[in-house]
Simulated assay, not measured.
Amino acid sequence: MTGTRCTIIPGYLLARIAEAEPELAPAVQFTLQDALHTRGRREVVATRWPGGQPPGQGGFLPPTMPLHREPAAPEQAGPPRTVVPEGAAPRRSVYDADGATTLPGRLVRGEGDPATEDVAVTEAYDGLGATWELLARSYGRDSLDGNGLVLVATVHYGQDYDNAFWDGRQMVFGDGDGVYFTRFTASLDVIAHELGHGLVQYTSGLTYVGQPGALNESVCDVIGSLVRQRVLGHDAGSADWLIGADLLTDRVQGVALRSMAAPGTAYDDPALGADPQPAHMDDYVDLPHDADNDNGGVHINSGIPNKAFHLFATELGGPAWERAGQVWFDTLATRGRIARDVDFATFAAATLVSARERYADAPEVVEALLGAWDGVGIAVS
């Protein structure tokens, strides 16, 4: 995966806020500059380390808690393994940056510790656990790396920090500016979305630019939505398919950051502008592949595969994390199924391979999948 930090709020929205609200400009500019300053961090964080220990681990975890469990057996071709080790459970460490930007900060809650009075700590701890539960109970994956990776999060990062991000080793949450965005732990789907970038890092490693970058963002939206739906007990038909609805203050004219059911309709705000996401390849936005243009529209064009997943899941019905989610997970996590620079059409073809492999006796799954990709203008052969 590229060294670019993956954040939930794209730079173009932050730039609009800085322009619309001069009093917020210093905090917003710091949010943007902080991302640029640490852009290379993920580039040097490998997904596998000799002996199972990453460089610079010392400050992240108590010395008695290894980052990974004992090494798993080598991955094999075919569908990912579907059974987690007996007795496996999430392992979480939540830290408090106390308004600074030094990571990870002060340890405030470890696995099994009682809840604190800090709501952000509780939300982060619960969100990490809910994401682990989806991966383990639905897909048989023990944490992001499949090998019991400790889930680390830092809350209260920076001053009025307008973002949440995965930096290659841990989750980081700002408290928001209080005008447009509230605390970033308030949205369970945002927590799961950002952890999804960790899952991508440990599986396909999708390049964060252009179409593979938009797929990276879309897969993480899928993970975020599925975690929230599973916690709430919503099936595909009753889910709202919104990402980041709990982040927006009453000031914003909109319902969420993104809508998987109706890309392009999440917000239409005087300051933030109109939601730019397309829902069909006819409206694909071709942008330069640089940071000033959202790395080629990774947060914009993700609306297309998002809509495809929504069509797939709602056509199948029932819990979206079951058959529809399983096909997406298999596509992401099966060794060699997709390349790091996969485009939309090739990813769609790979989901067809996954569906036929996993659901050979359920032709309705393949039929729904083909219809979904056709619905967004992508033909699958």
Rank of each mutant, 00 (worst) to 15 (best):
A15H: 09
R16A: 15
I17P: 00
P22Q: 11
A27V: 03
L32G: 04
A35V: 13
A35N: 13
G40V: 01
E43T: 08
A46C: 12
W49L: 07
W49S: 15
Q76C: 05
P80F: 08
V83K: 12
P90K: 02
R92K: 06
Y95K: 08
D98C: 14
L103S: 10
L103R: 10
R106C: 14
G110N: 05
E111A: 03
G112M: 00
A130V: 13
R137Y: 08
L144Q: 12
D145K: 10
Y157N: 10
D177K: 01
G178C: 01
G178I: 00
G178N: 00
F184N: 01
F184S: 04
D189K: 08
A192M: 07
E194F: 04
G198L: 03
V200H: 12
Q211T: 00
D221N: 13
L226A: 11
G237T: 11
L248D: 01
V252A: 07
Y267A: 03
M281L: 10
Y284F: 15
P288F: 14
N293M: 13
D294T: 12
G297R: 06
H299I: 06
I304V: 11
H310E: 12
H310S: 07
F312D: 01
R323L: 09
F329Q: 00
L332S: 07
G336W: 00
I338C: 09
A345I: 01
A349T: 12
L352C: 13
S354F: 02
Y359Q: 02
Y359H: 07
Y359C: 07
Y359R: 04
A360W: 10
A362F: 08
V376N: 02
G377W: 02
G377V: 02
V380S: 12
